[in-house]
């Protein structure tokens, strides 16, 4: 992605195993955040069967949320995440309830076009409110590095990656163990059956859309530690989330995380070995390859 932060040692002329290892580790940590964003998309698609074309816009909204809270209250983006998640949860809930719900039975392309419209509105609203210039957050550990064996990692990246793992684990636990999570999974497996046993599908759909939005909002607040917030990032993040979800397998949550890490690492390596501006190309080529060779994705099941 164009907004990917520069990696440590990116321009060092000599190369050794350690440097490559560092690149891979950095890419992996960034990839965890990509994976978290893609998780949100995957959750929504897996249950509501609607592709959220406004996903990147929600992520950038999360980034700006962190920027605002950091500027107004001096809040660390990691601590701002729950607040941003709450706001985006409500947004996602309302979006599903008021707008998307009437499109659940409509043809696929109509849903697509509807969310394209929502994405256009969000993107330009962000542009109107915050302007085209990039905004960043300042954290006290912004320039610290952590030494782990042969690895030398940015502290921001380490914290963001760790937070992404925690949120992803919480999400997995929610779907596996909680009653509501199980109900949502029942909804995804068989909407008619779920209705027959008395589940309130509309409520569960709204809940799912809210959760997916909250998750991508958190991904945004973590991403702002690594990348400055700009409205123009939104379409890129939407496409990136799509790529990751398709590479990992639509509807597969572990697949989304795996896909995120894969794309993060391949981007980092491509940016290092080729020119940085070509690294997005690499992600698209991976997507085209996966669509052709294994359209259900790495961990997806053939429908």
């Amino acid at each position: 992605m164009a907004g990917n932060p520069t990696l440590p040692f990116q321009r060092v002329p000599w190369m050794s195993f350690d440097y490559h290892l560092n690149i891979v580790a950095s890419g992996l940590l960034t990839g965890l955040i990509y994976g978290l964003a893609a998780l949100g998309l995957s959750v929504i698609f897996g249950v509501v069967r609607v592709v959220n074309f406004a996903h990147g816009e929600m992520m950038v909204a999360g980034m700006y949320g962190a920027v605002l809270l950091s500027g107004l209250a001096g809040l660390d983006p990691v601590l701002a995440a729950p607040l941003v998640a709450a706001v985006l949860f409500v947004f996602g809930w309302l979006l599903q309830r008021r707008l998307v719900n009437r499109f659940v039975e409509r043809p696929e392309h109509m849903q697509f076009i509807l969310l394209l419209g929502v994405a256009t509105i969000l993107l330009n609203a962000l542009l109107l409110v915050f302007g085209p210039d990039s905004r960043s957050v300042q954290v006290p550990y912004g320039f610290d590095t952590v030494e782990l064996g042969p690895l030398l990692l940015d502290e921001v990246r380490l914290r963001a990656g760790a937070a992404a793992i925690v949120v992803a684990a919480a999400l997995f636990a929610f779907f596996r163990f909680s009653r509501t999570g199980k109900a949502i999974r029942a909804c995804a497996d068989n909407p008619l059956g779920a209705r027959v046993v008395g589940l309130d599908i509309d409520r569960l759909y709204a809940l799912t859309f809210g959760i997916g939005s909250a998750v991508v909002g958190i991904a945004g607040t973590l991403m702002v530690l690594l990348v400055d917030a700009r409205p123009q990032l939104a379409p890129e993040y939407t496409l990136l989330s799509f790529i990751i979800v398709i590479v990992g397998g639509l509807g597969s949550l572990p697949g989304a995380l795996l896909g995120g890490v894969l794309i993060g690492v391949s981007e980092a390596l491509a940016g290092f070995l080729l020119t940085p501006s070509l690294k997005t190309l690499f992600s698209y080529l991976v997507l085209i390859l996966v669509l052709l060779v294994r359209p259900q994705g790495l961990l997806g099941k053939r429908s």
Partner: peptide
Amino acid sequence: PGLKQLFYGVALVVIVV
């Protein structure tokens, strides 16, 4: 900047709904 595109987005949503 962006108001025109915002308008296009609203038009799109209103029409499909």
